[in-house]
Design a protein around this nucleic acid. Structure first.
Lengths: 204, 204
DNA sequence: CTGTTGCGAAACGCAACCGTAGCGCAAAGT
DNA sequence: ACTTTGCGCTACGGTTGCGTTTCGCAACAG
């Protein structure tokens, strides 16, 4: 109101913030979360890993929870590329295999799974993860399903939204037992084929 | 080696342990875990809730982790009853609806989901939860599937183990978003029907 | 009765971690 | 020039929670 506040000043006076440090901090926080989980997550470890003073962290993220949220926002940095055109079966397998490998191999995938569990105790976290991280990923699968319906490869009376849990759920289920020796091994292809064909007999 | 060690002394000399206190402690620990999650779980809160001295807790569970494991062992106290005979579709819906309600409504179900996430950082915990808690529950579903195959209601070339992720996975997926307002709502019946019929067209 | 163990109460040492403050210097504005 | 802000470093206060110890009393075995 003084002269012209400018909509995006973000830097009025004094030394501007180093934006590279922002990414350094969130990257370090993301790695810390991935390796140790929420329980062992500490601000000091993040600062140390980022090679940054603790003060600098607290200037951007006033509290530990803010830092967690800021880190989780970077979970979709490695968004999977949409699968190339082709038969629906192959496209579904491609998408779901990406989901599966993310839910197991990569440390970020494990973190995503943990975030779901932690979100049950923190609505704010749950809403953020859902809106900013998972919604974009679901869109990819939705598109594949819609394409399949449009091309006649899938039943025309299917509801894409209802299919998401059917297809993605098993990937999470498999990913959860990746580290358990006694867990059964099931391939993504087998699951996709099972869902495509259905369980009922009398099939040509 | 002295005289005759006796295989199950469990009480050689002195005052015997009050077994009711064991269940008091594990119950309290289970409730604490369900309400606050692993991150906020403390031994002192468990002792307070159980109305027991902290010393008494530490006598049975030497460390915090042991107490966690001891509490999780009681997760299958409320095992669901196997569904009554009937059409496979209805039996599947019954079993999966139980899974779903456990994964959302009950605080224990949410804890189970969190245990999966936490198990990714603790192999011991993961193995225990899988062997002692989840394996018994899967058996119920396996039986329903096997019955369906035997009665000819399901395809004879199905692998029951491969079906478990297909059916249970979506329940976990739905349960995870129970608390997220923007999540899509899908009924268990719709999922079962989708999986039963399959996604391909050309169906009579 | 004597010895041994279980239980509760209270306090302790100890370590970790959150969040803050002071100092010195660097990097931008006016 | 002067001022304002960012950054690192160091240290601090305060809290929390783990795991232990001590003491007094209760319960059970021989």
């Amino acid at each position: 109101m003084t002269t012209a506040p400018a909509r995006e000043p973000a830097q009025r006076k004094g030394r501007p913030r180093d934006e590279r440090i922002d990414t350094e901090i969130t990257s370090a926080a993301l790695e810390e979360l991935s390796e140790g989980g929420f329980e062992r997550f500490t601000v000091e470890a993040v600062a140390a890993r980022a090679g940054v003073a603790k003060t600098t962290v607290y200037r951007r993220f006033p509290t530990r929870e803010d830092l967690v949220l800021g880190a989780l926002l970077r979970l979709n940095d490695d968004l999977p590329a949409p699968p190339p055109p082709g038969p629906v079966r192959e496209r579904l397998i491609a998408v779901l295999q990406a989901v599966r490998s993310r839910a197991t191999n990569s440390s970020r995938g494990r973190l995503l799974m943990q975030s779901v569990g932690e979100g049950l105790h923190s609505p704010e976290l749950a809403e953020m993860v859902h809106a900013r991280v998972l919604a974009p990923r679901r869109q990819v699968l939705r598109d594949v399903i819609a394409d399949g319906i449009a091309s006649g490869e899938l039943r025309s009376d299917l509801d894409p939204d209802a299919l998401i849990p059917v297809l993605v759920g098993p990937m999470f289920y498999l990913g959860a037992w990746k580290c358990v020796a006694s867990a059964p091994k099931v391939s993504v292809e087998a699951i996709v084929d099972t869902v495509l064909v259905g369980l009922l007999p009398l099939r040509p």
